[in-house]
């Protein structure tokens, strides 16, 4: 019973964290996009427009929740939660302090790699249940994309795990050494690109490609359900950034205490900003190019990296 209570508590905490992360993420996105676009971005709601996302959220929660007449009602209504919950739960395994994670399991890396992928079911369900051609195409694209990018992403993280000799998040963190930065640089690049694709953001935002599919798999969602989709997207961005900062930057270059924590936050923020920067700078790729990139470029790079790291690891350790 107590483990259930603990689970509920951490689940709630992760939900709250992801909500706050999404609030800040959306505000940041609009500000970053504004700076790239030579404009200011939200300004009127609160100081520096900080309350903008709050206003958006309250508005969206109170908006009419439409279920299209032709939709398959149950999958349609459930899909946002199926997308959101795995991404929220993936935040639980990230070590926020040295040697401590809310949900510190021995296979934390595996958990982080595996569980968010479940959201692909939600995306497919949302696209299919909407009974909307745009949404259907978006859902199918999303499924293909997320399944494909799973491989290079996991392989790139595996390199770090091999060096650490552990697939526990805290284990990887304990084993982290500054020279990993150089050895794991290609793996980090693969991880970064694959993460962008994994969370369906530009230039790989094909499932929701605005120019072709209007809004893709969530084209028919309104109000709170759409807000949950957006929260899942920004939660995914934040989770990928935090994970990248832990595994590839050793949670603030392995420093303990306050400087390490600050550096950790800094790296995570830098990765988030970089994702936004990439989104607003590059054109969108085409579905076939997306697949080519995953299977013919990123996966071989990740495999070669794995080989190199394997040699280094056997030699160093």
């Amino acid at each position: 019973m107590s483990s259930f209570a603990m689970g509920a508590f951490w689940g709630l905490a992760a939900g709250l964290l992801i909500a706050i992360a999404a609030l800040i993420g959306v505000w940041m996105e609009r500000k970053v996009a504004g700076r790239i676009h030579m404009r200011i971005g939200p300004l009127e709601a609160g100081p520096f427009g900080l309350l903008q996302t709050l206003a958006d959220t309250v508005k969206l929660v109170l908006k009419e929740d439409i279920t299209p007449a032709a939709a398959d009602v149950r999958p349609f209504r459930l899909a946002p939660f199926v997308v959101f919950v795995p991404i929220a739960s993936s935040l639980a395994v990230i070590p926020y302090a040295v040697g401590w994670a809310p949900f510190d399991i021995s296979a934390g890396v595996l958990f982080f790699m595996a569980v968010p992928s479940l959201s692909v079911i939600g995306i497919l369900a949302a696209g299919w249940a909407s009974r909307n051609t745009f949404a259907t195409i978006g859902g199918i694209r999303g499924a293909a994309q997320m399944v494909s990018y799973e491989l290079p992403r996991t392989l790139s993280v595996l390199a770090a795990c091999m060096l650490a000799g552990s697939i526990s998040m805290t284990g990887v963190l304990d084993a982290w050494r500054p020279w990993w930065l150089i050895v794991l640089a290609p793996a980090f690049i693969v991880y970064f690109i694959a993460s962008i694709a994994e969370v369906n953001r530009g230039p790989f935002d094909l499932p929701e490609a605005e120019a072709e599919l209007v809004a893709g798999y969530f084209a028919d969602y309104s109000g709170i359900r759409w807000a949950i989709f957006m929260m899942a997207e920004y939660g995914g961005v934040v989770a990928a950034s935090l994970f990248g900062a832990v595994v590839f930057f050793g949670r603030g270059l392995g420093l303990g205490g306050v400087p390490g924590a600050l550096l950790f936050v800094f790296f995570a923020f830098a990765l988030t900003t970089a994702m936004m920067w990439v989104k607003w700078t590059f054109p969108r790729v085409r579905p076939d190019q997306l697949m080519t990139l995953a299977w013919k470029v990123l996966t071989p790079i990740a495999l070669v990296e794995l080989l190199v790291v394997g040699v280094i690891a056997s030699w160093m350790l």
């Binding site: 676009h37 404009r39 971005g41 939200p42 427009g49 958006d56 209007v214 084209a219 028919d220 309104s222």
Partner: peptide, 22 residues
């Protein structure tokens, strides 16, 4: 909605999908 006038300052920005708009 672009650089010079930027009504995003007021929290208004264009979304092409009718389901998300006010």
């Amino acid at each position: 909605s672009f650089s010079k006038f930027d009504y995003d300052r007021l929290g208004t920005f264009p979304r092409p999908d009718p389901r998300h708009c006010d």
